[in-house]
């Protein structure tokens, strides 16, 4: 298990810590996302990296709200963010039963390319450095390593 070790060693080095529980409402999720992106802007992250975090977090929040919690406003989303000089770590949990990410069909195959949905997890994996789900499949943890401009 990587995270407890990671968390312990990095505890004093966070530039920004964020821990919030919101209702399953996309407008509230938008506010969370805007706060997160503002922190990356403030730390002068590359626009390409900000786009990646934006996309993956939006997909994860939408999945949590619609698929996890069934858009039920009485159910909550838990968002935890940790930002340091090198990376952002985002954890998003919902109250749903979870799902098996390994069972998702490949949306790029000829059988699924016409489907209007089913691309969110693929995009999260493509744009983030690491994406992991808990065993139940209702908490996703994503890490984006910051791109450095060569001197």
């Amino acid at each position: 298990m990587l995270w407890p070790l990671f968390r312990q060693s990095m505890t004093d080095r966070w530039l920004w810590l964020y821990d919030r529980v919101i209702a399953s409402d996309t407008k509230l999720a938008r506010q969370v996302l805007d706060e997160m992106l503002a922190q990356l802007e403030a730390q002068h992250w590359q626009q390409r990296d900000i786009f990646a975090v934006h996309l993956a977090t939006e997909e994860a929040l939408v999945n949590a709200i619609h698929h996890g919690n069934g858009s039920d406003l009485r159910k909550s989303i838990h968002v935890v963010c940790r930002l340091d000089g090198e990376r952002i770590r985002i954890e998003i949990g919902d109250e749903g039963r979870g799902f098996n990410p390994a069972a998702l069909p490949d949306p790029t195959t000829s059988d699924h390319i016409h489907a209007p949905c089913g691309r969110g997890v693929m995009l999260m994996r493509a744009f983030m450095s690491r994406v992991e789900f808990n065993e139940q499949g209702n908490v996703v943890t994503m890490v984006k390593e910051r791109e450095r401009i060569p001197n």
């Binding site: 939006e58 997909e59 939408v62």
Partner: peptide, 16 residues
């Protein structure tokens, strides 16, 4: 400047 998978879904439906 930004779109996500939900927008892709709308484009696929439009194409159909």
């Amino acid at each position: 400047e930004f779109l996500g998978s939900a927008a892709l879904g709308k484009l696929i439906t439009l194409d159909r």
